[in-house]
């Protein structure tokens, strides 16, 4: 396999991975399992065992 073929496969594979990643991201948003992506957004996180208010 020469350099040209390798570059082609890598580029097309990269595009394919972008589509797959996007589909996964889409499915996560639709099913509500997207909290893992909310890095740093601590206001959205709720700890049910947090009893500071008691």
């Amino acid at each position: 396999m020469n350099q040209q073929t390798t570059a082609w496969i890598l580029t097309v594979g990269c595009l394919f991975l972008i589509f797959i990643f996007r589909s996964i991201q889409h499915m996560r948003k639709e099913t509500g399992h997207s909290r893992i992506l909310e890095i740093g957004n601590e206001d959205a996180l709720y700890d049910e065992y947090d009893d500071n208010e008691l």
Binding site: Q4, W8, T11, L15
Partner: peptide, 13 residues
């Protein structure tokens, strides 16, 4: 970029 790379398949293969 991506379309031209895919379009170059005729040269590659």
């Amino acid at each position: 970029f991506f379309s031209s790379v895919i379009g170059a398949a005729g040269y590659v293969f």
